[in-house]
Design a protein around this nucleic acid. Structure first.
Length: 135
DNA sequence: TCGCTGATTGTTCGT
DNA sequence: ACGAACAATCAGCGA
């Protein structure tokens, strides 16, 4: 979308590219997944609502159509909210991609795990009692 | 029993 | 610059 579309005569939205059915086998295990677009970010919240309103919904097609229809009904400003989030996701993706390229360049076991470390849980967590207040 | 297919749009990569 | 692929979701059906 985005106002200026490169395609000049896109009068028909035929499903020219009807591929993507079976996701190709990504042979690159380190390849980071692509950041979710604003539409997907919106879908994250929409899925819950859709499930609540349509608990008997089956398949993703119904949700996809409903989501797409709702998405188009939204104003650019409303979508801007998700777009902003999507941008953050993209930023994070760039960082992941950087690590990915780094790995591709040279085999190093250094992953992008140097970011903020939630809790220093060295030992295997038991999970029985959640002690959020350590110390 | 396991795994793919379907439908939506946006974004990103590759040529 | 254009094209094509791929991101998540859930339940149903095929082999």
């Amino acid at each position: 979308m985005k106002g200026g579309r490169s395609k000049a005569g896109s009068k028909n939205d035929d499903k020219l590219s009807v591929k993507q059915k079976k996701v190709k086998k990504t042979k690159d295990p380190n390849k980071p997944k692509r950041p979710p677009s604003a539409f997907f970010v919106f879908m994250e919240g929409f899925r819950k609502q859709f499930k609540e309103k349509n608990p008997a919904v089956k398949g993703v097609a119904a949700m996809g159509k409903a989501g797409g229809d709702r998405w188009r009904a939204m104003s650019d400003e409303d979508k801007a909210q998700f777009v902003t989030i999507a941008e953050q996701r993209k930023k994070d993706y760039e960082a992941s991609m950087r690590a990915y390229e780094k790995k591709q360049a040279g085999g190093n076991d250094e992953e992008e795990s140097d970011k903020s470390k939630s809790e220093v849980n060295d030992d295997d967590e038991d999970g029985s009692d959640e002690g959020e207040d350590d110390d």
